[in-house]
Write a protein that binds this DNA or RNA. Sequence first.
DNA 1: TGATGTGAATAATTTCACAGCA
DNA 2: TGCTGTGAAATTATTCACATCA
Lengths: 208, 208
Amino acid sequence: MYKNKIPKASVYRLAIYLRGLEKLKINKKIYVSSPEVGKFCGIDPAQVRKDLSYFGQFGEVGKGYHIKSLVTNLKKILKLHHKKWKMSLAGVGNLGAALLSYKGFENVGFIIQVAFDKDCKKIGRVFSGVKIYDFKKMKEIIRKENIRIGIIAVPAEFAQEVAEIMISSGVKSILNFAPVILNLPSKIIVSNVDLSNELLSLPYFISK
Amino acid sequence: MYKNKIPKASVYRLAIYLRGLEKLKINKKIYVSSPEVGKFCGIDPAQVRKDLSYFGQFGEVGKGYHIKSLVTNLKKILKLHHKKWKMSLAGVGNLGAALLSYKGFENVGFIIQVAFDKDCKKIGRVFSGVKIYDFKKMKEIIRKENIRIGIIAVPAEFAQEVAEIMISSGVKSILNFAPVILNLPSKIIVSNVDLSNELLSLPYFISK
DNA sequence: TGATGTGAATAATTTCACAGCA
DNA sequence: TGCTGTGAAATTATTCACATCA
C-alpha cells in the first residue's frame, strides 16, 4: 500500500496536518479540502495531496477529505493509534516544566510517564501530574515502565551522558532539546529541536 | 561575492556551524577541517565545504579553516556582527522563562530586551535581568526601543493577536513557538519552532 | 597524505497540469 | 465548478570526484 520512496519531510508534515485537523474537529465541519488544510497549515495544497497520496487514497473526489476518518488514518500511519506512547523526561528546568504542562501530547497518543532531575528540591514532587525522580533511579524506572521514548531537556553538557543511560535502559528514540549533537548508535532515532538555531538565521533573511 | 542561488538549508546550517565553533574556540585549537566540523555538527563534510563555498573561500587548502576568522566570517554572513539584535518576548510562562534564562543568545549577538505578560504577579518583576511589562504597553515599548525581532511564547489562541500587535509596532520578523500558523504579511519573516511536532513523527520512524 | 573548492552527477522534493469524478 | 490523485516536469539540495595546493 505504501509507496517505496516517501520523503521524510512528508511524514513530518502528516504530523502537522494531524495537529491542524484536531483543532478543526471541534467545529461542526465534516469535510475538508486540500486547499483548506493547506491554508490552515501553511502548506501548498498540491503538497498536501501528494503527501497523503504516498499512503493511500483518503479523499473523495469533488468533496474533499472526511475529517474524522482522515484523522484516524493519519494516526494509523503515524502509529499513534490504540496505544499511548510513554515518555521519560530528563531535566525539569524551565523547558522541562513547559513540556510537562503542555496539554497537546495526550490528544495524539503521548504521555510523559516519569520525569527525572538531580535537584533535591524537585525530587519526589509531582509536576502537572508527573512524579519527579532522582536521576540515579532513571535506569531502573525506565526499564520497569518499559519506556521507548526519552526527552532530553538537560543542559548541553549532560545531554550525552543522559542519552546513554536512557538507551542502556531500553529507550529506542530520543527527542533532544539540548543544543548539541548526540553521538549514539545509528539504530537510535534522534530528533533534535533547537530553540535558538532558527533565530540565528533570522537576521540573514531580514537583511535581504 | 555571494552565489545567486543559495539553499535556505545552507544558511540554516551556517548557524549550526557557528554554534559548534563557538564551543570549539574554548579549546586551544587554531584550525579545524571540514570533516571535524562535520563530525561535530552531525553534517557531511562535503556539505560543510559546499555551504561555506556559497559565500566565499574561507579555508586554506591542506590546513583547514582558521577557527577564529571562520567565526568572524560566519557572523558577518549571518549579519550577527557589530550590532546586537534586540528582541521582545511575549509570554513569560515556562517556555518564556526558559528562553529568558538561556545564556546562548548573547554570544551570538542577540539579547532579549523586554518581555511581556498579562499576569499581574509577573508584571514589574525582573527575570534573568529582563523586566516584564504589561501586554498593554507592548506597542509603545517595542516602538520606543526600536525592536525588530519578536518571540512568541504565548498559548496558541493568543499568538495571532500578539503577532499583529508586534508587527504594528515595527517588528520585522517573528520566532513563533506557538503551535499555530500565523497569518501575516508576506514581508514579515516567520520562523516556527514547534516543540512537539517532531515528536509526533517519531513512532513512525521507530516502527520501521 | 590530507586538506579545500567546485563543477558535474545524482538524488530528493516540490510543483505543475490534467484526467476523472461528484 | 471544484475537488482528488498522480505521472511528469521543474526545482532544489546533496553527494561525488577530482584539480590544486601545503
